[in-house]
Design a binder for these strands. Structure first.
Lengths: 226, 226
DNA sequence: CCATTATGTAATCATCGATTACATTTCGGA
DNA sequence: TCCGAAATGTAATCGATGATTACATAATGG
């Protein structure tokens, strides 16, 4: 994908360039890609993501990124798309380990994969979720991806209802509540609430599991798992 | 603490000041207060909160705010404290209307008041909740307030457990889940997720109520309200 | 081989948070 | 009552940032 890093470095110094001793090739390999990665890494480090800093890490002038992105928001959108792609991959891997026939087990696996990724990639999750860095609707890919995940949980719940596993028939309400629960848990972690709620760092993933189980037990028809 | 607002404004123009036709008093009445309000309003308008803009609205030089706040974060912290105060007031008013004897009804009223305020004051909620504008722990008032709210829900759940109203004895898990649910719902609204989830603007408050009821029904011992 | 296009650089601008030196006002004690 | 210290606001300035422009250089294809 990216051949990157000085391909034919042997141009014999065509003209006396600036005084820089090492004449790196004028064209960067795949600057767009490198900028996205730099920004992702910045986010992962918890630092502010600035165009200039990304350019700095790519060893390129401050104006160069604007050849690839019309503005900062466009860069952030690209970063979010990359993060979302990784998120999706993780979710699908998690779902792949759940029994196909049991919709509630799949629902649980979904939530677990969701939270596990969010716990382990807080900065990436922040970028995807918050719509603060750019208008969410401005990325068709992000919108589509998200719609698919929504549809996925919707299907799981519909199946569960068909199999008579649920206490309530108001699927939309259950879906929103489930999303709110998982999203809220992820954001509590992100926003640093857990210390205040007496949840230790190393308890968080276990608590995530417990919270999901509590929710599922709450929507499940009673007497199924005694 | 602060004696406030232009006490003896009647100084009869002591010296020919600058050419400004209206010689406003050199000292602002209570700039600190005005800055906080300006910043709150900025947040309410969804605009970026900048020190300069707050100063501009207070009709004061860009450097003036730094006489009252060591840096931007300190201003934001003061804004958050003000918002939190209003939030608390709303919560307590909501709780005042719930029957004292029924802890789950109080739990419900708490959640409703929480969400209603968050829905109607999204920018203020953002400032209180997100810890992005300043280190949360840097404000003793905020920390204390929050601890009290946590303790409050804890007590409600403990009472509910004593009265045998709950299915599960794991109170901490219930508490975290409840918080995650409510917080997540508020943030979904804030982060603009609801359109993507098919929840219309005018449905949101009704949906908030529904989600809370679903949660309570889930933790309640079955057969209580048939 | 050369012209068109893509890509990076340099210089520049406005805005922002922050600091400093200085001006003005207020207020309490001699 | 006066005066000096403390509080409060202004003006000027700094470095960083997002963004734009004119220009330089490389890659590509007819």
């Amino acid at each position: 994908m990216l051949e990157c890093a000085m391909p034919a470095r042997q141009t014999p110094r065509p003209r006396a360039r600036r005084q820089t001793p090492e004449a790196r090739p004028y064209h960067h390999g795949d600057l767009r890609r490198v900028l996205i990665d730099a920004a992702l890494q910045l986010a992962a480090e918890g630092a502010e993501v600035s165009v200039r800093e990304a350019a700095r890490r790519a060893a390129v002038s401050p104006g160069a990124p604007f050849r690839h992105f019309p503005n900062r928001d466009a860069l952030m959108a690209a970063v979010a798309e990359e993060a979302q792609r990784r998120f999706r991959t993780e979710i699908e891997a998690g779902l792949g380990q759940a029994p196909v026939a049991d919709p509630l087990a799949r629902f649980r696996a979904f939530g677990l994969a969701y939270l596990r990724w969010a716990m382990r990639n807080p900065a990436h999750f922040e970028i995807i979720s918050t719509g603060r860095y750019f208008a969410h609707g401005s990325s068709a890919e992000l919108t589509r991806d998200n719609a698919e995940l929504v549809a996925l949980t919707e299907r799981m719940l519909a199946e569960a209802a068909e199999q008579g596993l649920l206490r309530s028939a108001d699927l939309k309400r259950i879906q929103i509540a489930g999303r709110a629960l998982v999203y809220g848990f992820a954001r509590m972690n992100l926003d640093g609430h857990f210390p205040r709620w007496g949840v230790q760092e190393d308890e968080v993933e276990r608590m995530a599991e417990g919270v999901i189980d509590l929710f599922i037990a709450g929507i499940e028809k009673p007497g199924r798992t005694p």
